[in-house]
Design a protein around this nucleic acid. Structure first.
Lengths: 355, 355
DNA sequence: TTGAAAGCGCTAACAG
DNA sequence: CTGTTAGCGCTTTCAA
């Protein structure tokens, strides 16, 4: 069995491969094959399914790869196999750290697997989501991850047509496109009512942002209202605004809400950042929290534990969702059958000083 | 000149193209060419450089594309041209909303251009950055965007070798790899000293997180210390910690700093989130802000304007950086020569209640 | 276990 | 302005 050739052959191999189109002398699989004394088919196998070639060949290929500092051209591979090492991920917002945290966890879970995330930002719009899915499809992704369970007809059609694993996340559904990893947003809204009731609240308020597009927030709202009715509360008074959730928005909302309904003594904000603004506003107005007013947020963003008073909030499994999505994906992409397709990761009410 | 054929030819075209490898009947450029009665080369031109084909042909191609709902296979195009419609973007953190905001603005600036961002998260590590650049390179990106001006030797080599536009951002440098869009972090640190001096501060403190890896924060620190000396202050006392910036970290840091140095009356936090924690801690401890203690942050994160007291901070051009990067990229990718390669977008000290 | 050969779907000279 | 002709670099039958 031929050994890896000496250095002068290495030189020859390198020289014989002028790469004019790339600005660079980048070696191709053929160079590796020649240096290792095998065919490109074997190199391909050695690289992707090492157990399907003899140990000796594998070693020679590895050495050749090393010496040429060869890196596979993924585009070519993707074209040939009609499948790329790409995973399309569509999230509604990059700035919102809910999804960033999920994506970070997903990246970590996928680390070393060779899969690359192609991240799209739908800005909470189903139309943009559709466009993003369409353009991601042009990359023949190995899988697609969508946020939420509501998508345009066309998005669903494309996803189904692609015949690849589709994972939805951050919500729950009895009929996921394929697999869904999340928790019940509605239940998250409900639990807040129970907590307020336990703390002796009498008149509930609600503050929400972007409810025309953020369906998860709408679900939390629905759960909140529903549970309030069941618990015998009067219908919660509410203040909503179109713009994305912000501390300033939260401050203004609370001020407006209290001006109109001075009897409110417990407010649920669909987002911790709104609650933060509320906390500051209460301080400015001299409303003691939780004495005069109880405030509960959603998200358990990092500052929630640090605020004064510390913020009671619902903690979604931000990182866990990403980790589980990665796990599901790896399993499916590794060829394992679907198995469980609905993963309820739950949530937790973190009671702190603000209620 | 032949018209677009009637429907039965359309049927034939569709039927004659079995796409078994994809789960789907997805048409190829050849189908479009046949239906439009031209060659694939012409279709390719009509799609990518519409002005280089006759209006009549363009119209027929467009119609054929429409009827077949044809979408170009980008992998194939990228392979053939050794250049993809991808732009690699490496940021140090996804959760940090500095960079998320920049990326969002960049996305908006690139909207409609057909370029897709391939986002990598280096977690503030040059080694990870290097790995990410290497794997992004496998996609033959049209350009690369890096954060900061410090990169590993190998990263720089790969970037240079690729012979594509390389944009660094969020810092300034006299010798960018290619082009740099940002502002002077050092100057940002300096201006805080001037502001503190104007407000009558006498003893300066500094709180920083992750200074072993966040070079931008280190530069701000250096500017702060340098300007403090020039202004005749005693060397600022400091508290640093390894973990990523957080409100809790900020609270703890301030408490520790003040315990050791009760004479400090003005603290610069390298990040608004640290300052937020500081604000809450001051409230808990009963230190009036700005009476007993002045606090200045960096970032002008959204909550800074909403807090009580509102937070004085340095506002970096978060969105503007992304917008400018997109503009530079579009120009360069459109074939225009480099021109200006250093873009100083400046920053602004936003004086509010906390100082 | 390995190799030969035939593409994957598109782009890019180069003629015409 | 348009078509012909070669690939881009890899994967994948199918035989050996």
């Amino acid at each position: 069995m031929a050994k890896v050739p000496p250095d002068d052959l290495l030189q020859t191999v390198l020289r014989s491969a002028p790469r004019e189109r790339l600005g660079t002398t980048r070696s191709r699989m053929e160079d590796v094959a020649r240096l290792a004394g095998v065919s490109t088919a074997t190199v391909s196998r050695a690289l992707r399914q090492p157990d399907r070639v003899s140990p000796a060949v594998r070693a020679r290929v590895d050495e050749a790869v090393e010496r040429l500092s060869y890196r596979r051209n993924l585009m070519a591979g993707a074209l040939a196999s009609a499948r790329s090492m790409t995973i399309g991920v569509i999230i509604p917002s990059m700035i919102n750290s809910f999804f960033s945290a999920t994506v970070e966890a997903m990246e970590e879970g996928l680390e070393g697997s060779g899969y690359q995330l192609l991240i799209g930002n739908s800005r909470h719009s189903m139309e943009i989501e559709e466009r993003l899915v369409a353009s991601v499809m042009a990359w023949s992704p190995a899988a697609i991850v969508l946020t939420g369970r509501r998508h345009s007809r066309e998005t669903i059609r494309m996803a189904l047509d692609a015949d690849i694993p589709i994972v939805e996340m951050w919500e729950l559904s009895d009929h996921p496109i394929d697999t869904i990893v999340g928790f019940s947003q509605r239940a998250a809204g409900r639990i807040v009512v129970r907590h307020f009731a336990e703390r002796g609240a009498r008149k509930l308020g609600f503050i929400g942002a972007m409810l025309d597009r953020d369906y998860r927030a709408v679900d939390r709202y629905a759960g909140f209202v529903e549970a309030a009715a069941e618990a015998g509360f009067a219908p919660p008074v509410e203040y909503r605004f179109e713009k994305r959730a912000s501390a300033i928005g939260g401050s203004e909302a609370l001020r407006a809400l209290m001006a109109q309904h001075p009897d409110v003594d417990a407010v649920f904000c669909t987002n911790d950042i709104l609650a933060l603004g509320g906390l500051f506003e209460a301080q400015r107005q001299g409303w003691s929290v939780p004495g005069r007013l109880r405030i509960c947020g959603f998200g358990d963003l990092e500052f929630a534990a640090a605020s004064e008073p510390a913020l009671t909030t619902v903690r979604p499994p931000r990182g866990a969702i990403g980790t589980k999505v990665a796990e599901v994906l790896l399993s499916r992409l590794g060829g394992k059958p679907a198995g469980q397709t609905i993963f309820d990761l739950g949530f937790e009410l973190v009671a702190r000083g603000s209620t």
